[in-house]
Each structure stands twice: as C-alpha cells, then as structure tokens.
Amino acid sequence: MPKISYQSHDGTVADVNAPENMSVMQVAKANGVDGIVAECGGSAMCATCHVYVAEDFLDRLPVMNAVEDEMLDCTATERKPSSRLSCQIKLTPDLDGIVIHVPERQT
C-alpha cells in the first residue's frame, strides 16, 4: 500500500496509507484531509483539488493531458511547475512515499 504525506499550508502533516488505483484526491477525501475540495468529484472540471507535488516525484506522475492542463490555469492559488490536479494522480507502487503540498485555498 503506497503511503502519501499531505502537508498543509500551516504545517499540519497527514500521513495516510492508500490503496492502489485510488487517486490522491480520493484518498484525501476518504481520510478527511483538509484543503482539498474536489467539488466535481474527479472529472478535472473544477480545479478545486489543486496540489503541489514534491519535486522528486514529478517525473513519476502520470502524463498531464490537455484537459488537466487547461484546468490548472483556473486554480485559486498560483500555478507552479509542480502543480497538478490530485484527482488525476492515480496511485501506483512507484508513488510510495509521495509528498503532497496542499495549497492555502481552493476557491
């Protein structure tokens, strides 16, 4: 089971064991992690599950498609090179230990 570390803006850390095939967004919602709204439920439509992914995991992530790319231009906090929609990151063994920085706000 891959482990995810969600680190919030105020320094709160939530370490969660995640079943494979769930998304980083779904695991956050299932574990009550604050700061990920995910209004659209995972259809890459609302940009309210925006996260910054720790640099050493960036090249292990699934390739960003055009829809996610468009949506990342609509985030409430600044888009950075490490920006992703957490609903589009499906967990694989390769992502064990991934560190997710949750932005200050989503709307």
């Binding site: 299932a30 209004e39 659209c40 439920g41 995972g42 259809s43 890459a44 439509m45 609302c46």
Partner: peptide, 21 residues
C-alpha cells in the same frame, strides 16, 4: 456527497457543471 454520479464521473463527467452550479 463525495462519489455521487449526478454529473456522471470520470472523463465524461458533465463539462458544463460549473455553469449548472
């Protein structure tokens, strides 16, 4: 309501849902 399928879900989830909301 996480997981409801009122707008569908996945790649075909309603593209106009922000309008509806």
């Amino acid at each position: 309501t996480t997981g409801h399928v009122g707008f569908g879900t996945g790649i075909h989830g309603c593209v106009g849902q922000m309008v509806a909301r």
